[in-house]
Design a protein around this nucleic acid. Structure first.
Lengths: 289, 289
DNA sequence: CGGGTCTTTGATTAGGTTCAATAAGAGTGG
DNA sequence: CCACTCTTATTGAACCTAATCAAAGACCCG
């Protein structure tokens, strides 16, 4: 059985590269320190035009360990972050300390954008696994748009992408049932894993049920129950944080839990009610008899 | 009583306030046709630096009448819109035609940003009243950042602002009760009206209960009931679309409906239940007697 | 091992949805 | 100007989904 905390073959999780996928072993110690513009474009999935072959322009990396905070709410903003590897969460903290998860940035994602407007970060970012981030000072970011005009559009595009993502989120929270939210969450995770070259059929969640629930506007119990229900009807397999996707199509289109497990519950509930009624009615019948 | 459709003293709604429709006809013709950069900055609430006193650079206006669509989902993106006057909604349409309201742009708001990423609008914008919009072709937008470097930051800032707003929305949908959502919606509307120079204490909603509900992730019935409840306990006055704010502070901090009306409901419900039970128990008593 | 965190599952309840009926406007056309 | 229709708003009642409260099991780390 895989370890729960950071399974799969994550580069940072081993020193000797015994395991297949990426040979980026010994991450912690020999983490990449600088990227050039071409690499930056690559990780952001931006088409790199010829002129970006600018070997002079370098971007610093920085490593964070699981649990470390990258930035806090209210902290002075001056740099954007791009995830090179690892998993994070961004959260809002309400007046009385409750976390509201906003996103789970992973490879290729940009975060920190919410700091531009007020010059202070509006959210907090925390590493859910060991992470390798590329620092992109905002000054450098804007300068980039000016000096490499083909990139300017890309800058705006990346920000627009974030906005569209938030819109989709709002739409989901506003309109979908708990089951549909969890289903879509799994699907989108699977897609992200696929993009990153991992299996989209079998992966480990990096976040707790509580964090998922917060992200989806649900309680951790509802998340847990929903996963169990999906498991029962064969859409997925669940074992703690290890998730196996069995029927991606069904998950994609699911709006409310079809039959089966939910039906069973309903039936059970109905039976219970009928049972109670039958007792009552037996009385009334006795009474009226 | 105020007219429902576009109350308050809206500049465009009067040439001669005789006939509502023909007055609009007047409005159409005398709408402002061009703004310079300084005016643009003003409406966007961006500090206008000296160098923007560029009288050559002009931005076209365009008028839309109530109900008209500004852009559709999938339509090729090439221009951003800034609201000079009027009220709109932006919506997402799901696989089976249900609208999900994303925002209610009004004076000073920028929309269309979601089109940058894919080169197609991700949402649809509809005029809820007669509107005067400033067209901001995306090319011009980016050029602006290059030629007026002090403005570049403003460009990013405005986009960041949109993102922060969406985040707040997600947070609200994920964490707050129906009452709290409606309360905050009213407060934020009031603040917007104040910014625009209207009364923040008495205003008319430009959107239907259905649209509000969609925006807040609630049904129209819940919105209506909640407004009625706020009215009952004296937080607001409601008459159709006319809203009077009586206790803004209470609305701001409200998390769940305190006592009073909700208590009354609970009591009523409890009574009903007890009534039913008393019938049942009378039977059982008869039975057991 | 033992304490702490995370997860699962059950029982109950509350908040919101759904269904339904009524009322109030706004717009249309005779 | 009034009847007619269509949309929007209000309100009630029943139902249902997801939250809450609670308890036990799994796993993790020192």
């Amino acid at each position: 059985m895989l370890s729960t905390q950071m399974s799969e073959v994550r580069p940072e999780s081993q020193t000797s590269a015994l395991h297949p996928p990426s040979a980026e072993a010994g991450w912690q110690r020999q983490g990449k320190l600088w990227s050039n513009l071409k690499e930056l474009c690559e990780v952001l999935r931006i088409p790199a035009t010829p002129s970006v072959a600018d070997e002079e322009l370098l971007f610093q990396h920085v490593q964070f360990k699981t649990g470390q905070r990258i930035h806090t709410i209210g902290q002075t903003f001056d740099t954007l972050y791009i995830v090179h590897s690892g998993f994070l969460k961004t959260v809002l903290i309400d007046e009385f300390g409750n976390e509201q998860v906003l996103s789970f940035p992973m490879k290729g994602d940009l975060f920190g954008v919410d700091g531009i407007h007020t010059k202070r970060y509006a959210s907090e970012a925390v590493a859910l696994s060991n992470c390798d981030l590329i620092l992109l000072p905002f000054k450098k970011f804007t300068a980039l748009g000016r000096t490499h005009v083909e990139l300017e559009h890309a800058m705006y595009s990346v920000m627009s992408r974030e906005l569209v993502r938030e819109q989709a989120m709002v739409s989901m929270l506003g309109a979908l049932s708990a089951e549909a939210r969890v289903a879509r969450f799994l699907v989108s995770l699977a897609e992200r894993f696929a993009e990153m070259g991992y299996s989209s059929k079998l992966f480990n969640l990096r976040m707790t049920r509580h964090e998922i629930g917060s992200y989806l506007g649900l309680t951790l119990e509802t998340v847990s129950r929903t996963l169990s229900a999906f498991n029962e009807i064969g859409l997925i397999t669940v074992d703690q944080r290890s998730i196996g996707i069995k029927d991606a199509d069904a998950l994609k289109t699911l709006r409310r839990l079809p039959p089966s497990s939910s039906r069973a519950k309903q039936v059970a509930a109905k039976k219970a009610r009928q049972h109670a009624q039958s007792i009552a009615s037996s009385w009334t019948q006795l009474e009226t008899a």
